[in-house]
Design a protein around this nucleic acid. Structure first.
Length: 348
DNA sequence: GATCCGTGGGC
DNA sequence: TGCCCAAGGAT
């Protein structure tokens, strides 16, 4: 097996000219603080840069060091994460902060094996932190780098089976110089030039050696498994408000949808929250009240299903355990619940 | 390996 | 409008 050739210099040249400036980014030989690298990498999992930036700035302002984050309440962290999605990331983030602060004197492990043991850090994130924060020559393969390498080497094995081969190629082309810049350069480049659709092959500095370009198959790679169709679900959310303007909300179970997040009581849209019969909409109400239906519904699309949510309303005092009455105005809610509140507040 | 887990932007 | 997708991880 010959070592794959890859124009590393062209990638670095592109990065030096077009690489983005980001709040968590430094340029070799400077290395960004591991706390910033870790926080940004967790936020960037399946999430675009533009969405992450304001959350990153907010988190680092609230909690400048990792032990500040570790000392925060879980509810505080979840509220700050509200709207970013994939809420298990926030729970694991807080857990990992506690471990690093308590067991590692606030310093992150500097190698892949140590990082990999922390909750929320998988193969990609461990490699990324080791490279970007510690200058290690670790394997860093995300969706962007998968795409570039699958095209450059014309790898036609479908994902995720192709991951092993792509990882091996990455290790072969990894240069000795600028180990913290290399994966970031590849990701920036893939994001701006080697895009999923309409890749910019015409102006691509890698076009000369790209096997997919030569074969005319760039846009068809990487090959992915076909998607499943999304089922349509229907549910109901109950919004009650008391005479002091407080609404009845609960903290959801850590398992399942919107785990650990503040939410209006609801039914019918996850496997564990009971049945919803639209013919008898108030049967699953959290407590007895003079419930009425709002005049409109909420539509929301999740990763694996689409949801139509009915909204029930009531003015009510004294229902439910007092500790579950949360003031809604300052609360940060997951987007579905924010939509429910938008509908409800117009009619309460 | 397959499934679950959010959200917003681009086309 | 509907579909695609994005710096994945846990189970």
């Amino acid at each position: 097996m010959t070592i794959a050739s890859f124009p590393v210099t062209a990638i670095f040249d592109w990065y030096d000219r077009h690489g983005r400036s980001l709040p968590w980014r430094r340029r070799w030989p400077e290395l960004a603080p591991a706390y910033h690298v870790w926080l940004s990498e967790i936020m960037l999992q399946q999430t675009v840069v533009a969405t992450v930036i304001p959350y990153f700035l907010d988190f680092t302002r609230r909690w400048p060091e990792i032990c500040d984050l570790a000392a925060a309440g879980q509810d505080e962290v979840m509220a700050a994460w509200a709207g970013l999605g994939y809420y298990a990331r926030a729970r694991n983030l807080h857990r990992a902060a506690g471990i690093v602060c308590a067991e590692h004197e606030g310093r992150f492990p500097a190698d892949v094996e140590g990082l990999r043991r922390l909750p929320g850090i998988g193969p990609y994130t461990a490699g990324a932190i080791a490279a970007i924060a510690f200058g290690r020559h670790s394997t860093v393969v995300d969706g962007n780098i998968e795409r570039v390498l699958a095209r450059y080497f014309a790898i036609t094995t479908p994902l995720p089976a192709a991951k092993a081969e792509i990882g091996a190629r990455y290790d072969e082309i990894l240069p000795s110089e600028r180990p913290s810049d290399f994966p970031q350069a590849l990701m920036d480049f893939a994001n701006a030039v080697c895009t999923p659709r309409n890749p910019g092959c015409g102006a691509c500095p890698l076009a000369g050696g790209c096997a997919a370009r030569r074969a005319g198959t760039a846009e068809a790679l990487p090959v992915k498994a076909p998607k499943k169709t999304k089922p349509q679900r229907r549910g109901i959310a109950f919004v009650a408000i008391d005479s002091r303007g407080r609404t009845f909300m609960e903290t959801r179970a850590e398992r399942g949808m919107l785990g650990g997040m503040l939410a209006f009581p609801s039914a019918g849209w996850t496997p564990d929250d009971g049945v919803y019969d639209p013919e008898n909409p108030f049967a699953s109400a959290p407590f007895g009240a003079d419930w009425r239906m709002a005049g409109e519904t909420v539509s929301h699309v999740f990763t694996h299903f689409s949801l139509t949510m009915d909204v029930a309303l009531a003015e009510h005092d004294g229902a439910g355990p007092p500790e579950n009455w949360h003031p809604v105005r300052p609360a940060r809610l997951p987007t579905l619940m924010r939509k429910v509140w938008t509908v409800a507040r117009r009619q309460l």
